[in-house]
């Protein structure tokens, strides 16, 4: 798929749903075929627009889960119980349905090889979605440093992309650290409880290494982590944040 930095125009495109994949009880990945897609950068998002028969429309943004190198665009959607768009995407959408979206959008929360590293990604709940894109993009090319992913989730069943993250860890040496904040298995060897300063100091690269840090998730999570990393000594200018609406951290 051709790589494009910024689309010249942001137009609504019509895609066709190819496949729906159950990631977790609340999350589904939607694989979309988009004939007019011009490529994207890891970390960007799309706006999805739904239209009812009487013309009523609702629009939401979703991070792109697929890498620029992947064959199809993939969005991973968390079902919000009181949501208007997410329950449609996770419960109603079927293969061969049309889906209207525009993108790619965003130039701030992106990572590509030319930006360098080392790379630290900190995810709260479904904030992990853009990091799947970044990791796949990283793995698809040459690299001399290995990224670290710190991923906070309420419970283990809610961890998205478990198998893929395990593969990144086993095959590519990516340092994946899970923090379970609400419930964990008895023999859990990962972090228990909220992501705190001690855990960040343990997992993050030392400030002297000047990592590129990306933090994505609910606002309170992102702000607490960003503040703590700056307190530890990381340069604010090398910490990038993307705040989501409600999600399960």
């Amino acid at each position: 798929m051709a790589r494009a930095a910024i689309p010249r125009r942001l137009t609504w495109q019509l895609g066709r749903v190819v496949e729906l994949i159950d990631e977790t009880p609340r999350c589904k990945s939607v694989v979309v075929d988009l004939p007019e897609w011009q490529g994207h950068r890891a970390g960007q998002h799309v706006d999805v627009r739904l239209t009812a028969e009487d013309g009523y429309q609702a629009e939401r943004s979703y991070s792109i889960a697929s890498a620029p190198e992947d064959a199809h665009l993939v969005l991973t959607v968390e079902r919000l119980d009181d949501g208007e768009v997410s329950p449609y995407l996770t419960d109603e959408l079927r293969p061969d349905d049309e889906l209207e979206l525009r993108g790619p959008i965003g130039g701030y929360f992106v990572w590509e090889r030319s930006l360098g590293g080392p790379l630290l990604m900190v995810a709260g709940g479904s904030g992990v979605v853009p990091f799947r894109s970044m990791l796949r993009h990283w793995a698809a090319g040459e690299h001399d440093t290995v990224p670290r992913l710190l991923y906070s989730s309420r419970t283990l069943p809610e961890v998205i992309y478990q198998e893929e993250l395990t593969r990144f860890s086993a095959d590519d040496g990516v340092d994946v650290r899970l923090a379970l904040t609400r419930e964990w298995p008895e023999n859990w060897e990962g972090h228990r409880g909220r992501v705190d300063r001690g855990f960040l100091e343990e997992v993050a690269w030392a400030p002297a290494e000047r990592p590129l840090v990306y933090i994505c998730g609910p606002t309170s999570f992102v702000e607490a982590v960003a503040q703590t990393l700056v307190d530890i000594g990381h340069e604010p200018g090398r910490v990038k944040t993307e705040r989501f609406g409600p999600t399960g951290t």
């Binding site: 609504w12 019509l14 239209t51 009812a52 208007e84 109603e92």
Partner: peptide, 9 residues
């Protein structure tokens, strides 16, 4: 816009 099958909001 095309109609999103089954969407009512």
């Amino acid at each position: 816009s095309p109609i999103s099958r089954g969407f009512g909001g």
